[in-house]
Design a protein around this nucleic acid. Structure first.
Lengths: 340, 340
DNA sequence: GTTAGCACTCAAAATCATCGAGTGCTAATA
DNA sequence: TATTAGCACTCGATGATTTTGAGTGCTAAC
């Protein structure tokens, strides 16, 4: 059996109607809804075919049809194709004044959630290859040193390091200079034993302090590697089909723990294929198997990237989501470029 | 009618039983459950009295009784009193190694949520009177200056400030020195026009930069004044009585938006009466009117304080919650003292 | 003052009937 | 051959009705 043009139109009509209503759609509805001028009986025959082909399913005998994951998949693929070159006039307003990365990301998450009415997540960039732009050590009080590290992309990390005595100012300056000359331009993986060795021998007398600082730097960069922000997680309540006790609590848990996206980043690695749509069972993460997850990857320089995800019901307004996401991506790209 | 000793014991038994089961408790249960050796009929008479006194209510005729807000209130008050001097051996494990405030707070929230099975919130300290310990300006690249502000309590704030050209090193050093001499020890409210004036005249040629920096400092300190962290919000699903569509979504929304606690801080001001318990309608915040909210205030120096809140059902394990909270408070106090 | 006993209440659960949207199939039609 | 009208059938949803049982209040006896 072939998926001819008429079947495709009917499928599309079914999906669109289902997206709007959330109810299984029957043959009579389609018969009236479309401009195909076919009787409900004919539609029934076609629907029967579409079901055999696996694009739609019946929740139970004598109910209308709803799209299967395969059906959504076809729909999304078609849509993505047709949208490919189309201009999208939606303008995402992002307050780029604050140049701090985390503020921008938080705001991005909120924007997405507000404008789509789904839940959103955004991961902070993946620092694996992030290079150190510079380091600044300052004595805060008698036994604490503040260490600020700026990475490229103007990501700022700071940490406190304990030290046993107050350093003379000249020493601190010297240490600062040393740190910068040795570490500038290195990424976290390049800070290896030999570099540390050199630093230690150079800084006679401060060997433990150096170790402590490097530890802090390493821990800070690696530990928070996959932080993420979420927003609008309660939007989930708006979709009754997700609103079964078990599902909703799992989803919210995944969102609160920020697992969904970070897991995905681990699983899928850093392959970037622009906007990805995971429908139902396609989802690589257990908790989201009843949802659709749309992800997009944003880029900074040098293979540094993060992901934005939108989590909603299968019957998601795919057009809007993809559109909004596209816009946001370009906005973010703009901001990050300016920042460098 | 008097609330004699026997009535009190029965009330206590009712509450405790209800805390465990979540079901209305009947006379027969109490008759067996307690060591009073009274028949269910007698209990029924007493319960009837207790209801008249307003300590318990019937969800409907022919159901058992559940505690009213007034009943809980009595119970909590009694418990708080009896706990007052009692040593509590629970030990809260807090990783104090990382000396960064936000990490500690996040961890505290998580600990509380995990150990109590309720939702927790924690606000970052209220900076109103926070004094500047010092300021560090650094040129990050040609048109960006990084400004790190350390407040007492070792709260670190950093922000990027745009500037039109690269400053010579000497000038930056001079600015740094100036900033520190003028601003050190001041709190946000003491940075007034006259201070700014002085700074600007002193720093000939950098007047705009100075303004920008001060703006950033002010905005940063004021804007994030009432940030908060939450944890375990999905624990709410564990309590069926909160699990009505409307309630749960409101609660989660309040939690996600971190409204509950911050609102409370605004409403109640900075009066600190240690551990506070708000039961049901006593709650000053609309969204939590079906819950119990237990809050505690932690202290740093100089009137700087924050709040921790635990949100759960009315039938909360008050003993455990209060105990855990007490411990956490003392742990936090320890950490913050060490940090100074 | 306490208790046994009993009639009464009422929410929750179980049972049953009805309704109707939607289907699949068949036979008639274009 | 493709389309359509017609009809019997299915089955979840809705709602009425009954049953059940935990729990009460009251009264009379201890």
């Amino acid at each position: 059996m072939e998926l001819d043009d008429r079947k495709l139109k009917i499928l599309q009509a079914i999906i669109q109607n289902y997206l709007e209503t959330g109810e299984p759609v029957g043959s009579r509805t389609i018969s009236k809804y479309t401009d195909l001028n076919l009787s409900s009986a004919t539609i029934r025959n076609e629907m029967s075919d579409l079901e055999e082909l696996g694009f739609i399913v019946q929740p139970h005998t004598s109910a209308g049809r709803i799209p299967s994951d395969k059906g959504y998949r076809l729909y999304v693929d078609m849509m993505l194709k047709s949208k490919e070159d189309e201009l999208n006039e939606l303008k995402v307003e992002l307050n780029a004044k604050s140049q701090k990365l985390d503020t921008v990301l938080k705001e991005a998450a909120r924007l997405i959630a507000d404008s789509t009415n789904y839940a959103s997540m955004i991961t902070v960039p993946h620092y694996r290859c992030k290079k150190i732009k510079f380091i600044q050590l300052t004595q805060v009080d008698a036994n604490t040193i503040l260490c600020v590290v700026v990475l490229d992309g103007n990501v700022i990390k700071n940490m406190m390091v304990a030290c046993d005595r107050e350093l003379p100012k000249e020493d601190l300056l010297k240490l600062n200079l040393m740190m910068n000359t040795f570490l500038q331009g290195l990424d976290i993986q390049e800070i290896n034993v030999s570099v540390m060795q050199k630093l230690r021998t150079e800084a006679s007398g401060y060997s433990t302090l150096i170790s402590d600082i490097l530890d802090a730097v390493a821990k800070c960069l690696e530990g928070e590697e996959l932080e993420a922000y979420t927003s609008g997680s309660t939007n989930i309540f708006k979709y009754p089909e997700l609103n079964e006790a078990g599902t909703v609590s799992n989803l919210l848990y995944a969102l609160e723990e920020k697992k969904a996206l970070t897991d995905l980043m681990y699983k899928e690695g850093d392959n970037d294929r622009g906007i990805q749509v995971y429908i139902g069972e396609e989802n690589p993460i257990e908790a989201t198997k009843d949802c659709t997850l749309v992800t997009a990857t944003y880029h900074m320089e040098d293979g540094v990237y993060g992901k934005i995800g939108i989590l909603g019901p299968r019957r998601m307004d795919y057009e809007k989501v993809v559109g909004t996401l596209r816009n946001l991506m370009s906005d973010l790209d703009g901001i990050f470029k300016k920042e460098q």
